[in-house]
Simulated scan of single mutants.
Amino acid sequence: MSTAPAVHPLRRPVDAPERRLHAVAEPDRKRRPKLLYGIIALLGAFAITGAQMALSVLITQTSYDIAELTSQQRDLTYQKQILADELAGLSSPQYLAANAAALGMVIDETPAYLRLSDGAVIGAEEAAGTVSSVDAIGRGAVENALISETPLVTAPDATIAGDPVTAEEMGLAADTPLPVTDGLPTPATR
Rank of each mutant, 00 (worst) to 15 (best):
E68G: 15
L96C: 05
I40C: 02
I48F: 15
V24H: 02
L96F: 14
A67C: 04
I39T: 00
T49N: 12
T62H: 07
I82D: 14
D65Y: 01
M105C: 11
G50W: 02
S91C: 05
G89Y: 00
F46T: 15
V106C: 10
I40R: 02
D85I: 09
L87M: 09
E26V: 13
D65S: 14
M105Y: 15
N99Y: 13
I59L: 08
Q52F: 07
Q79K: 04
L58M: 14
K30Q: 12
E86S: 14
T60W: 03
L36R: 05
A51T: 11
Q94Y: 11
T70D: 12
S71R: 07
E26H: 05
D108K: 14
V57W: 00
I59D: 04
L42N: 06
A41Q: 03
D65A: 15
D85Q: 14
Y37A: 14
D28S: 09
S63R: 01
Q79W: 02
L76N: 10
T70C: 07
S71E: 10
I48K: 04
V24N: 07
A100M: 10
T60K: 02
D85C: 10
I59P: 00
K80A: 09
N99Q: 08
Q72D: 09
T77Y: 00
I39D: 06
L87G: 03
A101Y: 07
Q52K: 12
L43V: 09
T49H: 09
L83C: 09
A100K: 03
L96T: 04
S63Y: 06
G50K: 01
L35H: 08
Y95Q: 02
Q79A: 13
K80N: 04
G89L: 01
K34M: 02
D108L: 11
D75V: 12
P27W: 00
Y78P: 02
A23P: 02
Q61T: 08
A67T: 05
A98T: 00
